[in-house]
C-alpha cells in the first residue's frame, strides 16, 4: 500500500509538471504560423501539421491510424466524447486527461512486464497533439516520461491516438485489439515488434489478472479474422508506386504494416 501511495504522489507531481509542459506545447500548436515576409508559405503550416506530416514519411503510413480511428469512431467502437468539443479547450483539460491516460498506460505496461529486461525502449506518439511519451527502464522499473521531443534511435515506435490510449487506460480496449483495428501501429525491427506484442497484447483487458498470466499468442491471422472488413480494406491495392516517383523511402525493414501497400 505504501508504495502505491508513493506512486500516486509522484504521479501527481509529475502531472503538474506535465500540465505546464503540455500547456506550452499546446500554446505552440495554436500559435500556428509565424508571419513570414517573403517566401512560399502556404499559410496553414503549423508546427503540429508539419510534425504530423513528417510522421507519415518517417514511419511510413503511420497516419493510417487517423483513418482507422475515424472509422472506429464512426462505427461506435471508440467513444465520441473525446472529440465532442464545442468550446475551446482553454485550460488544457483535454491534455491533462491524455497525459493521465499515458501515465496509466505506462503503469499497465509495467504491471504486464514479464521481467525487468523484457521491455525494450518504447516511444509512443499520440497523433492529434503530436505528443511523444517514452517508456524505458528506470532505476526502479519502467519509467514513463510524457512529453519528450521524439523517439530515440533504436526505440520501438508506437503510433496511436488520444482516444485509443484513453480507452486502453480505462481497460475498455486491449492493446492487441487496438493493433488489430489499426488504431495503433508499430515501427521497429521484427523481433522488437514481436516481443512487444507477445508481452503486452493483453494490456487493457478488463481482468487485470490476465496481464500477469499466460498470454495468448497474437497473430496476424487472428487480426484478419477478427475484423474482416478491416482486413479487406487494409489489403486493398493502394497503387502507390514509390519507385515511379523516385522519392519515397523503401521501408521493407521497419514497418510492421508493410504488407498493406503494394
Amino acid at each position: 500500500m505504501g508504495s502505491r501511495t508513493k506512486l500516486t504522489g509522484r504521479r501527481l507531481l509529475r502531472s503538474q509538471k506535465l500540465a505546464r509542459a503540455i500547456a506550452v506545447a499546446f500554446a505552440a500548436s495554436f500559435m500556428a504560423t509565424a508571419p513570414t515576409s517573403e517566401g512560399h508559405a502556404c499559410g496553414y503550416d503549423s508546427p503540429q501539421t508539419a510534425s504530423q506530416g513528417f510522421l507519415n514519411w518517417l514511419y511510413p503510413d503511420s497516419l493510417y491510424v487517423v483513418g482507422a480511428i475515424s472509422r472506429e469512431v464512426a462505427a461506435g467502437r471508440l467513444p465520441v466524447a473525446n472529440f465532442d468539443q464545442t468550446g475551446p479547450d482553454l485550460f488544457g483539460h483535454r491534455f491533462k486527461l491524455t497525459a493521465t491516460a499515458l501515465e496509466q498506460f505506462g503503469d499497465m505496461l509495467r504491471a504486464a512486464s514479464p521481467g525487468p529486461a523484457a521491455l525494450p525502449s518504447v516511444s509512443l506518439v499520440v497523433v492529434e497533439p503530436m505528443l511523444w511519451t517514452r517508456f524505458d527502464q528506470g532505476p526502479d522499473g519502467l519509467r514513463t516520461t510524457v512529453h519528450v521531443p521524439g523517439a530515440l534511435p533504436g526505440d520501438l515506435v508506437l503510433v496511436s491516438g488520444e482516444a485509443v490510449i484513453t480507452e486502453i487506460a480505462a481497460r475498455r480496449l486491449t492493446f492487441g485489439q487496438a493493433v488489430e483495428r489499426g488504431v495503433v501501429r508499430l515501427y521497429g525491427t521484427a523481433p522488437q515488434i514481436a516481443q512487444f506484442l507477445l508481452s503486452y497484447s493483453d494490456v487493457g483487458a478488463s481482468d487485470s489478472a490476465v496481464e500477469t498470466s499466460q498470454k495468448p499468442v497474437f497473430s496476424l491471422a487472428s487480426a484478419a479474422a477478427g475484423s474482416p472488413h478491416f482486413a479487406s480494406m487494409q489489403s486493398h491495392p493502394v497503387g502507390i508506386a514509390p519507385a515511379e516517383l523516385g522519392c519515397t523511402p523503401d521501408h521493407t525493414e521497419i514497418s510492421f504494416h508493410e504488407g498493406e501497400r503494394q
Partner: peptide
C-alpha cells in the same frame, strides 16, 4: 526469426 518472433508474426 527466433521462435517468439515467428509466433508473434503468425504462421
Amino acid at each position: 526469426l527466433d521462435d517468439s518472433t515467428k509466433a508473434a508474426l503468425g504462421p
